[in-house]
Nucleic acid binder design. Structure first.
Length: 281
DNA sequence: AAGTCGGGGAT
DNA sequence: ATCCCAGACTT
């Protein structure tokens, strides 16, 4: 796996030897539910503009939200700035070491704390993202896809296969994630390119049986509050403010929905009232 | 354990 | 149209 990564791994800027712990943390937050190709340009601009936690901490929040652009889930941008402020206030401006201290930061959950521990501090940590879960589900459990939510069995397996030696554990984490992203993909896995194709993979050995028919039942997007909230945020990013008229035009048929979304954005701190309209905080 | 929260490219 | 993406947080 580690040899495969050395040969096939992507050359991403947050993996360069000169990348700071903060820049790696920023990349991990941006990559939460957002593909690499879309994060790349935003991350480059972001790090050029706010290279250290103190820079982001003192930036106008409206500019932070604009720089976040269309990465999605803009609450992540808000939390990232809160994270920067917490690092400045509580950790002397340095990304803290240790999963417990990292998890106490806004927007840093189990996965990101482990990823920063491994990739920024080069300490041993059980990194379990969607890619690792899928690779382990196939190779170890013989299943086409991992369970819907993270289970204790998955944590146990991931801990079991993680190399003891810290440097190797970091390389392993990086390699398994990359394998899941490039080869052991959700849709059409490229088993012919996989170093684990064969006895090393239970799913491959079993003839790649299809996933059980579990209705994933993901929330639809068109017509939801999520979509309208996104449209409102897009409006606020490009124009300085949005009038009530402009907001209502986003969904002329449902004023209730517009008002509901407007109120929820204010409640989330993503927008502030501006007369009857809205503006960025 | 289930819901909510963006957005875009692939299928 | 549906799926999927280096998840976090609330209920």
């Amino acid at each position: 796996m580690i040899a495969w990564f050395a040969d096939a791994g992507r050359d991403l800027p947050w993996r360069s030897p000169g990348a700071s712990a903060w820049s790696i943390l920023v990349s991990e937050v941006m990559l939460q539910q957002t593909p690499v190709v879309r994060v790349l340009p935003r991350w480059l601009d972001w790090m050029d503009r706010w290279p250290a936690p103190a820079d982001l901490a003192s930036a106008p929040t409206a500019e932070v939200l604009r720089a976040w652009d269309r990465l999605g889930y803009p609450r992540r941008a808000l939390r990232l700035q809160q994270c920067a402020r917490a690092i400045v206030d509580e950790h002397d401006g340095e990304v803290p070491r240790g999963e417990e201290a990292l998890r106490a930061l806004p927007g840093i959950g189990e996965y990101t704390a482990a990823a920063v521990t491994a990739f920024a501090h080069h300490d041993r940590a059980v990194v379990l993202d969607t890619n690792v879960r899928r690779v382990l589900a196939r190779t170890m459990a013989g299943a086409a896809l991992p369970p819907r939510s993270l289970t204790v069995a998955e944590r146990r397996t991931a801990t079991q296969v993680l190399p003891e030696e810290p440097e190797r554990s970091v390389a392993w984490n990086q390699a398994v994630m990359e394998l899941g992203a490039l080869v052991c993909t959700a849709g059409a896995p490229r088993c012919e390119q996989c170093p684990l194709a064969g006895p090393a993979c239970a799913w491959y050995s079993a003839g790649r049986p299809p996933a059980a028919e579990g209705s994933r039942r993901v929330q639809a997007f068109a017509g939801t509050d999520r979509q309208l909230r996104g449209q409102i945020m897009a409006l606020l990013r490009t124009q300085d403010r949005a009038t009530e008229q402009a907001l209502l035009e986003l969904d002329p048929g449902d004023e209730q929905r517009v008002q509901r979304c407007r109120a929820s954005l204010v409640a989330d701190g993503l927008a502030v009232p501006d007369g009857a309209g809205l503006r960025l905080p």
